[in-house]
Design a protein around this nucleic acid. Structure first.
Lengths: 201, 201
DNA sequence: TGTTTGACTTTTTCTAAAATTTGGTCAAAA
DNA sequence: TTTTGACCAAATTTTAGAAAAAGTCAAACA
C-alpha cells in the first residue's frame, strides 16, 4: 500500500469515528482534519469533497460486511438459515453504525450523487440475495424463478418492513430499541417468502 | 337523512372535489365554503375543524371501497384471486384519489390526530387481509398460522413495496405513471406470500 | 514533484423579525 | 337552529443579515 492510500485510510478511519459518534451532518471537514492534525486544505488534497469521503466510508463498511456474508455462505445449513445469518449480520452493523444510517436521511448533499450511492448500495444488497436464491435453486431447495426481479422484491419488502415496523406512518429511521423487534419481523417475512419459493417434495 | 347530515354530505363532496384536484394542503377552508356559497364561519358550524373534515372524507372513501371488497369476497375463486381483486380495487382508488394520498404526507396537522387516523386506516387494511387469510384457512387452502401478526406483516410489506418500487431511496408517494408497475410488483409479492402459506396436498 | 498550508471565496445553514395566509372563534342577526 | 361579518390566534412564508461550513488556490515546503 502506497503512502497516499495509507493516508486516505487514516482519514477514512478518523472520519468514520466522528461520523458514527456525532453523525455525518454535524461533523465538519475541519474537525476531521484536526483529529489527524492536518489542515483542512490538506484533507481536500486526498478527498475532493465531503461526499466522496462519505462514499468511501460507505463502501468500506459494505466491503467489510461482505466478508461476514462470505462466512455465512460457508456455514449456513440451508437457504433460510443463510438469510437469517445475513439478517443477524445486518442487525449488528445497524446497531454499530446507527448514527451513520440516521444521518443519511437528514443530509442534503447533491440529490443526484446521493441517489447514485443509494442505488449502488441497494444493488449490492440485491446481488447478495440473488446469490442466495441461485444457490437455493441449484441445490433443488427452491423452485426455478426469476431471480433478478424476485431479489429486488425481497430487498424492497425488507426495507418496507423496516419503515412500517409497528407503525402506520412510515419512519425514515426506526428507534434503536425497536431494532430487535424489526429484525424479528424481517425473519418472519423471510421464512414465509422462502417457504413460498420452496420445491415440494 | 336530516338536513344537517345532508349539508355535511354536500360539504364532504365539495371538499373531496377540491382536495383530490389541488391537494389537501393547498385547499383552504374558505375555498371549500365559497364553492358551496357558504361563509367560512358556517362551514365551521358543520365541521369543528379542518382535520375532522379530512377524516370524514377518509372514512367515506374507505367505507365505499369496502363494498367493492365485499363483492370481491363473493366473486373470487381462491385466496390469491381475492387478493388480486383487492389490489386491483386499491389501484383504481389510488388513481382516482391520487392528489389526496399525495398530500397526506406533506401535511402537518396535529401529529397525534394524524397518527390516530393513519393507524385506523392501517388497521382496517389489516382487518381485511385477516378476513382473507381466515377464509383461506377455513377452506383448507392455507395452513394454520398467526393471522393477526401475518396480516400486519403483509400490509407492511405491501406498503414498503410501494415506497421502494424501482428505487433505492424511499419515496413518500410514487409517480402516477409508475402505479401500474408498482401494483404488478405487489401482485408478484402476494403470489409468493400466499404460496408460502399454502397447504401442501 | 508530490504534499502541505494560510488566506481566501463561495455556498449553505441559522436566526430572527416582518408580512401574509389560513385556521378557528364569537356575538349578533336572520 | 342556522348563518355571517368581524375578529383573533396560530401557522406559514418571506426577507435579510450573521455565522458557519464547504471548497479553492497560489505559494511554501520537503
Amino acid at each position: 500500500m502506497n503512502a497516499v492510500d495509507d493516508k486516505r485510510n487514516q482519514i477514512i478511519e478518523a472520519a468514520l469515528k466522528r461520523f458514527s459518534h456525532f453523525g455525518i451532518a454535524k461533523t465538519t471537514m475541519s474537525e476531521v482534519a484536526e483529529d489527524l492534525q492536518l489542515s483542512k486544505a490538506n484533507l481536500y488534497y486526498y478527498f475532493p469533497d465531503k461526499f466522496s469521503l462519505i462514499e468511501a466510508i460507505a463502501y468500506r463498511i459494505i466491503d467489510e460486511s461482505d466478508t461476514t456474508v462470505e462466512k455465512a455462505f460457508g456455514e449456513a445449513k440451508d437457504t433460510l438459515d443463510l438469510l437469517f445469518r445475513i439478517l443477524d449480520m445486518k442487525k449488528a452493523y445497524f446497531e454499530k453504525y446507527y448514527m451513520l444510517t440516521l444521518n443519511l436521511h437528514e443530509m442534503n448533499i447533491n440529490e443526484d450523487k446521493w441517489k447514485g450511492l443509494a442505488k449502488n448500495l441497494f444493488q449490492r444488497e440485491v446481488d447478495t440475495v440473488s446469490r442466495v436464491f441461485k444457490q437455493g435453486i441449484a441445490r433443488h431447495e427452491l423452485v426455478t424463478f426469476d431471480v433478478a426481479s424476485t431479489s429486488e422484491l425481497y430487498v424492497s419488502m425488507m426495507r418496507g418492513l423496516a419503515m412500517f415496523c409497528d407503525r402506520a406512518t412510515p419512519l425514515a429511521l426506526i428507534d434503536r430499541d425497536e431494532l430487535a423487534r424489526m429484525f424479528e419481523k424481517q425473519k418472519q417475512a423471510a421464512a414465509i417468502i422462502i417457504n413460498g419459493l420452496r420445491e415440494k417434495e
